[in-house]
Simulated scan of single mutants.
Amino acid sequence: MKLAFLSGAVLLLVLIFAFSATVHMQSANAAASVPGQLNGPLKLKIGQQATINSENISISFLNVTEDSRCPSDVVCVWQGQASIRISSEVNGTSAGQFVLTIGGNEKSAMLGGGKYSIKMTSLEPYPVSINHTEPENYVATLVVSKVVANSASVYVRAAVSSSSSGQDGGNIAAVSGWSLNSGKGTLVILSKESATAATSKMTIVRFTPTEAHCNNQGTKQCIDGHIVDSRGVAGDTLHMEASDKVLYLTAGGSNYTLDIRQLKIRPQPSTVALSEGQRDGPLLVQEIGAGYVKGLNFVEYPLARLDGTPITLHIGDTASNGCTIMLTLLKTEQHNWALFSKKVDYSRPCPL
């Protein structure tokens, strides 16, 4: 009788413990989900997941792989770096695992076929020589941004409308053009001291254009410029964003919102990001290195082949099926992803 009683008591305790552990695990999992937004800081602990509902993106903080940052109370020759491993999902499909790094060799990652970028902006706490940081105490701050695929070239002419208030009485106009292919851009700003002034002041800026993130809702063309020659604009950088109707311009410490009078664009070829083991069109990627990709190229013209031919691409090299599709290597993130421009020419159909 005593043995049966003890066995029943032990079983009851096991059931209570199992129930408590299950409730605790469910509560922990529920607490591990953190709502986030695009371009906003995502603060995660190890084991937590952030979800950006507007883009259907989920990011999980798996572990810290390295923290060699110079302690705050020590003088070091090298600043060191910190790295974490994350996993990601886009539209309910796994986008793989990535290592993000801050410090010496900073590393970000691309998601959604190159549509999004993710980077780590901080990892707390910062090391102190006399303290040891337990894994559960780390907090990583991440930022997910949408990458804008700018057009190959843009020409825009804009001016402040005469009805606008607070912006020089409508006496500002701008004309700009840039080409990502040639790496050149020009901005001309015309301004008058008053609406009745007979002459305008002309400011000319020449800049090197680079792809940028859009800050204003509804903008389609976003460009950052590194100023290489300027007559009348202070600083080293400028930023422009263009929608169908509005041009946002930041230059020389001033911000302008201008009405677009003319906008001409020439589209950029589409881009595709591939990881090791992925295929798009004729190319199966097998190895991604620093500035190169190795894989198999599947040719369909003049004769379709079931087996791929070994191929090594460096930046600027092209893989093709011989007819409709061309993939040109743009850049690589070693062992993570490779970015290609993709051109499809349906005027050159492959044979059946």
Rank of each mutant, 00 (worst) to 15 (best):
E124H: 12
S60Y: 00
V160A: 15
E124N: 13
L187W: 00
I102R: 00
A82S: 08
S117H: 03
A152W: 00
L100A: 03
V154L: 11
I57C: 03
S58L: 04
T133Q: 13
V77L: 14
S108L: 07
V77K: 10
G92Y: 05
N171G: 11
I189H: 01
I57F: 04
D73N: 12
A109P: 05
K146N: 09
Q81I: 10
K115V: 07
V148Q: 09
V175C: 05
H132D: 12
V147I: 07
L123V: 08
N181S: 15
I102T: 11
M120F: 00
R85P: 11
P127C: 09
G185Q: 06
V128L: 15
S176W: 02
E134L: 15
S145V: 04
V175Q: 11
S129V: 11
V90S: 06
V188K: 14
G166T: 06
P125Q: 14
S88M: 05
F61C: 12
K119Y: 04
Q97A: 08
E106V: 15
G96Y: 00
V99K: 04
L62D: 13
N150V: 05
S176L: 14
A152E: 08
V75G: 02
S87H: 01
Y126K: 11
L142F: 03
E55T: 06
S182N: 07
F61S: 08
S153P: 02
Q79F: 10
N131S: 15
L190A: 07
I57L: 09
E134F: 11
R85H: 07
E106L: 05
S83K: 06
T101F: 05
N181C: 13
V64R: 09
G166L: 03
N171D: 14
A109G: 04
V156N: 07
S94R: 03
W178E: 02
V90A: 03
E134D: 15
G169N: 09
S182H: 02
A158L: 09
S164A: 15
A140R: 07
L187V: 12
Q97I: 01
S83I: 08
F98A: 09
G114Y: 00
T141A: 03
A95P: 12
V77H: 08
D73W: 01
D67K: 00
G104M: 14
V74L: 07
K107E: 10
V147W: 01
A173K: 06
A158V: 10
E55R: 11
P71F: 05
S60D: 10
V75D: 10
S153L: 03
N137S: 15
V139D: 00
N63A: 10
T196K: 10
Q79S: 12
